[in-house]
Computed example of a mutant assay.
Amino acid sequence: MHQVLLYIGDFPLRSFGVMLSLGILAGLMISLWVAQRQGFYYEEVMDLAFYAIIGGLIGARVWEVMFSWDYYSQRLMEIPAIWHGGISVQGAILGGLLAVVWYCRKYRIAVWAMMDTLAPGVLVGQAIGRIGCFLNGCCYGLPNEHLGFTYPPGTDAYLAFGAQPLFPAVLFEASWDLIELAVLMFLYKRKPFNGFIALGYFILYSAGRFTLEFWRGDSLRTFMNFKAAQVSSVITILAALALMFYLYRQKRPLIEDKRSKRVNFKS
Rank of each mutant, 00 (worst) to 15 (best):
V4L: 13
L6K: 00
D10N: 10
S15R: 09
V18I: 15
V18F: 10
G27Q: 03
W33S: 14
V34F: 09
E44H: 04
Y51C: 06
A52S: 13
I53M: 10
G56R: 03
L57C: 07
L57P: 05
W63S: 13
F67D: 09
F67L: 14
W69M: 11
W69F: 15
E78R: 13
E78V: 09
I82P: 09
H84E: 11
H84V: 02
G85T: 06
G86D: 01
S88P: 01
I93V: 15
L94F: 09
W102V: 06
C104F: 03
R105F: 04
A110V: 12
M114E: 04
M114Q: 04
M115D: 02
F134D: 12
G141V: 07
L142R: 13
H146C: 03
P152N: 08
P152H: 09
T155K: 07
A157V: 08
Y158P: 00
E173N: 13
W176M: 09
I179Y: 03
L199W: 04
Y205N: 06
R209S: 10
T211G: 12
L212C: 08
G217H: 08
G217C: 13
S219I: 11
F223P: 15
M224N: 12
N225G: 12
P253K: 13
S260A: 13
V263N: 13
F265E: 05
